[in-house]
Amino acid sequence: MSNKRTPWKWMRRAGILLAVLGLLWVLVLQYRMETFPDNPSADGDVGIVLGSALKQNQPSPSLQERLERAVVLFQGGKISSIIVSGGLTRTEFDLSEAEGMRAYLIERGIPDSHIVMEQKATNTYENLRFSKRLMSQNNWHTAVIITHRYHMLRAMEMAEFLGYDQPQASPVDSKVLSKFWSKLYETAAHVKWLQDQLFLLMGFQA
């Protein structure tokens, strides 16, 4: 009888071990999201603002936080141009995320001639992939990536995967988003990124 139970006992122990390791991985990941370092000296040829939802065709309060960081960097001479990246993600909207962001930046005094729209992206990977093409077209070599701190870890991993040349990060802390739910969502998104990265390395589209 004991011999028959042995395989199940090992399977149960293996399951418990995997669950513990998975929990530890999540905790480490969330710690890395929370403590992603600031970089006050971040500068580059262009700043890339990663898109997020519009609200009534206007940037949501959380997206405004990212845009305000771009304004600060531009006015401080850290970047000379801004890519606003985000497509038409919801059919009830009249504007793409990029169009909404561009209008906001113009209202904040950024010259239209210094703003480039990327309007095809529907996720973070596409934000960075399509923005990199625009960098090549405009002969820009270095970029400062602008997004929230909890999102920056995955964004930087994607930028490095896509071959960005020493990308700089300018993480933003949110005063309007729930930290718990943002990090929970981002944990799930990071798991999906690991899967997508494997598919991309194998030659498949994620």
Rank of each mutant, 00 (worst) to 15 (best):
G22Q: 00
P7T: 08
F180T: 12
L67I: 06
F204C: 04
H148E: 10
E126S: 08
V28D: 00
K175P: 00
S113N: 07
G47I: 08
I146N: 06
T187G: 02
Y125H: 14
K192E: 14
K9C: 03
Q168W: 04
A143S: 15
S60H: 05
T187A: 07
L128R: 12
N57K: 07
G15A: 07
I48H: 11
R102V: 01
V176D: 05
H114P: 00
L73V: 07
N138A: 02
V72E: 15
Q119V: 10
T147N: 13
T187K: 01
A155I: 08
A42V: 05
I145Y: 00
L63T: 09
Y104L: 04
G76P: 11
P171W: 01
E126N: 06
Q166S: 14
E118N: 10
N39V: 03
D38H: 02
T35W: 14
M11R: 11
A70S: 09
G87Y: 02
R108L: 14
E97I: 01
L73Q: 07
R5A: 09
S85P: 11
D43E: 14
N39M: 03
F204N: 12
Q119Y: 01
R154E: 05
A169D: 10
L128T: 11
D43C: 06
A42W: 05
K192H: 13
W193A: 05
G47D: 08
L162P: 14
S136R: 13
R66F: 09
L95R: 15
A188M: 12
E126G: 03
S62M: 09
H141P: 00
I145D: 04
M202V: 03
D165E: 14
S80C: 00
Y31R: 09
Q137P: 00
L162E: 13
I115Y: 03
G77D: 10
L73W: 09
L50E: 07
Q58C: 04
P111N: 02
M101A: 15
P59S: 12
S41Q: 15
D43A: 10
A19P: 04
T91R: 13
